[in-house]
Amino acid sequence: MLLIRCPWCGPCDETEFRYGGEAHVARPREAQSLDDAAWAEYLFMRNNPRGWFRERWVHAAGCRRWFNVERHTVTHEIRLTYSGTRVDPMSELDRAPSPNSK
């Protein structure tokens, strides 16, 4: 069971949230000009790392706002939650892994 810190409501039980998959998958601006392979890349291809992963959650039973979480997919440790409007959060975190990370 995860304890997720909503940026607006604070730490809440996982059952209050719904999952939104990988974060920062931007819809292509000129979608009509893409070929099938590029559209498939946007629609279906996803990162699926064993390690730190930035993902979207919505506080469905709370404030109902979307936000992003950086969570480790082996330890389930959450080291960052941030508003979904930030494009590239703290890239320096990639160079300073948590002691728990593998």
Binding site: M1, L2, E14, T73, V74
Partner: peptide, 13 residues
């Protein structure tokens, strides 16, 4: 479980 994981365990709910 809804979230991505490689941990071979899931949530109790």
């Amino acid at each position: 479980d809804a979230y991505n994981s490689y941990s071979q365990r899931g949530s109790f709910h």
